[in-house]
Design a protein around this nucleic acid. Structure first.
Lengths: 240, 240
DNA sequence: TAGTGGTCTAGACCACGAA
DNA sequence: TCGTGGTCTAGACCACTAA
């Protein structure tokens, strides 16, 4: 079932989409507070009804790019605090002003055991990539990450993908996680973990289990052990 | 600067709000998949333009109550996974199938010290409510919570608000937190904490600091210590 | 006073799904 | 075929802000 010659019908974008994308391009990287064109200006410019312009602007307001102030106008909004966004280890450390490094402890193809298979939505025995790394920040150990990847989704990953960031490699394959669930608890490290993290036994650590999803496919499950003296997790909660 | 007699103008709710609340009441606790009235039905019922009805429905779709299916209709949506929502301790335990109880250790009016004042957006010496509780789940200790509340926003709180849930009491005063930031780390308990939580010294705990905001006011800052053997934190991350 | 966003009307045509 | 939501029009009046 391959797409052979999906006769692409060139269709005019919907008007509210045209207006929306025009405004997005216009203000894409503007400073917060920059005024957007007024709704009536856009009505003139596109020869369109005001409700149509409002539909376009509504979308941009909903996604947080714009902010309306009655009686004054519409402006580029301050980017909201984005703690709680899905970041790679590298990006996460960058956000904290630390230099991220990784050191591979183990990287090989394996057959999924029952637990990993279930977590990755596979059947036992399917091929998975097992990748274990010691992660450093500003030179000192920060965490040990033990990850399993869905090999079916990432052919040739072990050969090509190793040197760069995991999430970057996934992005290149169109498998960048869009969504993840973490569960977090406190624990004591094993002897090996304590040694790798260069901490005394009996020093508490944070254990984070992650299940990362791209589209509707589970691409990664991992267990990480963080040095609690170096790492605090930030979470944002909203009421919805 | 007290509110003396804020002449309350009884004003007719906006039409799209009337429609929205009518539909919300109608479908409040319905099973996912229950059909909502069609837009044209609501136009008839309220004698209102279709754009007005759409504005009402848009809001309910945006907040996740409804789901539109073109050509079929509008239906009650499946509640999305709501890990990562802002829940009170009571609601959080309920979600986990546990019975929440609380035992007040300390509850009094104090003057804000420098740290608490800054966290609550107050000036040092302003009145705050200091409320420390041992929280249980299914009878056994789960966490010790040490909270500071902005007294200015909660007049008479100490007299009236104590017995019930904190978030419920805040809701009754229109100060239900809409937003919060948590920071989470692993640590060892103090002797007092270990005793209160009924755990051995040297058993790791989760420390959670929270800053809870209602509208644009900080209403609560707290530090909680959770038994890590009983409590795992769940976090959802999205890419945005 | 002029301009802004917020609300609202009374229509219209379209694509899609179900019967 | 008929009902649904999706899009769109060409106006209108309001409350608010800034000059």
């Amino acid at each position: 079932m391959t797409v052979v010659d999906n006769a692409v019908v060139e269709r005019e974008p919907l008007k509210h989409v045209q207006v929306r994308e025009y405004v997005r391009d216009l203000l894409g990287d503007s400073t917060p507070g920059t005024p957007a064109p007024s709704e009536r200006e856009l009505v003139q410019k596109f020869g369109v009804a005001r409700m149509t312009v409002r539909q376009a602007m509504d979308a941009l307001v909903a996604e947080g790019l714009l902010e309306r102030i009655p009686g004054r106008g519409t402006f580029v909004a301050k980017p909201r605090n984005q703690v709680g966004r899905l970041l790679s280890y590298t990006a996460e450390m960058q956000r904290r002003g630390l230099l991220a490094e990784s050191q591979t402890i183990l990287a090989r193809r394996e057959q999924a055991g029952p637990g990993v298979a279930r977590a990755l939505d596979l059947t036992e025995g399917d091929a998975v990539i097992h990748w274990k790394r010691l992660r450093r920040a500003d030179g000192s150990p920060m965490c040990v990450e033990d990850a399993y990847l869905n090999e079916v989704l990432l052919p040739g990953f072990l050969q090509s993908g190793m040197p760069t960031s995991l999430y970057h490699s996934l992005a290149m394959r169109g498998m960048r996680p869009t969504w993840a669930e973490d569960s977090v608890t406190a624990d004591l490290p094993t002897h090996e973990e304590a040694q790798a993290l260069e901490i005394a036994p009996g020093t508490p650590v944070l254990r984070v289990s992650r299940r990362a999803v791209a589209g509707d496919k589970v691409v990664e499950v991992s267990r990480s052990v963080y040095r609690a003296d170096r790492f605090t997790l930030y979470v944002q909660l909203s009421d919805d």
